[in-house]
């Protein structure tokens, strides 16, 4: 049985705890490598070839190639490391956040301008299950 943590009840949220950190070590280390311009160039030139340099799982590689941010997080990716990847693509935090919520960037930006996602109804998984 995987350990159940109190914060696992928060909906739509993945806390970067010890288990996720261990799972994501190679994925996050790949992201970290993109801090260097020459590595960004090598990655852009041959994504699949570049990813083979790191001891990542097949799921982690596929999630990166598909730019599936929620999948990367599920595979142990941390948002501040993943940022190196979406910056390499020329995208912003707001772009990535919109992608993860399944909203268009325009709708997401509008939501933020209107005060953001409200806390009411977003505290517990039970609230998300009940909203149908």
């Amino acid at each position: 049985m995987p350990k159940v943590n109190d914060y696992d009840d928060i909906p739509g949220t993945t806390v970067f705890d010890a288990a996720r950190s261990r799972k994501g070590y190679h994925l996050n280390s790949f992201c970290m490598s993109l801090m260097k311009a020459e590595n960004r160039a090598a990655f852009k030139a041959d994504e699949e070839g570049y990813l083979k340099r790191f001891g990542m799982t097949e799921a982690q590689r596929q999630a990166v190639l598909k730019r599936d941010w929620n999948w990367m997080i599920q595979e142990g990716g941390n948002i501040y490391f993943l940022a190196k990847l979406f910056f390499t693509d020329g995208n912003s935090f707001q772009y990535a956040a919109a992608e993860m919520t399944g909203m268009s960037q325009e709708d997401y930006a509008k939501m933020m301008l209107a005060g953001g996602r409200p806390i009411e109804g977003n505290r517990s998984k039970s609230e998300w299950e009940n909203r149908g």
Binding site: I10, P11, G12, T13, T14, N70, I73, I79, F93, A96, A97, A98, M100, T101, G102, Y108, M111, M112, G115, G116, R117, P118, I119, N122
Partner: peptide, 17 residues
């Protein structure tokens, strides 16, 4: 202050908090 950058709850703001 309040912010969430990840997952389906991204964009959360809690002004009262």
């Amino acid at each position: 202050m309040s912010h969430q950058l990840q997952g389906k709850r991204a964009g959360l703001i809690n002004k009262k908090f």
